[in-house]
Design a protein around this nucleic acid. Structure first.
Lengths: 88, 88
DNA sequence: TTTGTTTATCGTTCATTGACGATAAACGAT
DNA sequence: ATCGTTTATCGTCAATGAACGATAAACAAA
């Protein structure tokens, strides 16, 4: 994981809503877009965009499950971030 | 440190150059703007802006020392970030 | 006090972000 | 096959970001 990858993840986490989404995903392990939409005061398209960005950064993955998409935090990537920060 | 503060710091770290600046500051403990300008292929004004942003986020502090400004990483804030990430 | 050095700020330009509503796409169920 | 549900994408708009050169500001030294 080089600096560009790290920056991408930090950038993805550089928004309060996205931090809260990640925290929520970790807390409940996995969930679909709709559940997140219900929690936050933003439109479905906005939440979907945030999830897309998180996914593009690598910190979150999403598996299509019929018409739904099941999102969760990539533990491996999360651990890489932890290792990096710890070593700072 | 609430979510907004965290997001601000992650956002500040969400750029390769700023990550490298922080890494450099940690490595050599402290340095002035000019030294950083010499390392990176960006103009003085661009580096100064990056430093301003890092400072505004709280992760970096800068003490004016005559005509120079001496920058360093705020260890306390860094530790708060470490704690937060570890607990994720 | 003038000069040189160092840093911050201003103004500009182009690209990206964050939010939205509307719409399309994918699929399960009827 | 159609309908309802769920998610993704598109287009738009205002705001912010990243880079630059030029300039101002702060200070040391001559």
């Amino acid at each position: 994981m080089d600096t560009a990858d790290l920056a991408k993840i930090f950038k993805a986490l550089g928004h309060p809503t996205r931090i809260k989404i990640v925290e929520h995903l970790i807390r409940i392990n996995t969930c679909v877009c709709g559940e997140i939409v219900n929690i936050f005061p933003y439109s479905q398209s906005t939440i979907s965009q945030h999830l897309k960005l998180l996914k593009a950064s690598g910190i979150v993955c999403g598996d299509v499950e019929g018409p739904k998409t099941r999102f969760c935090v990539d533990k491996h990537v999360l651990n890489q971030i932890k290792d990096y920060i710890d070593r700072l």
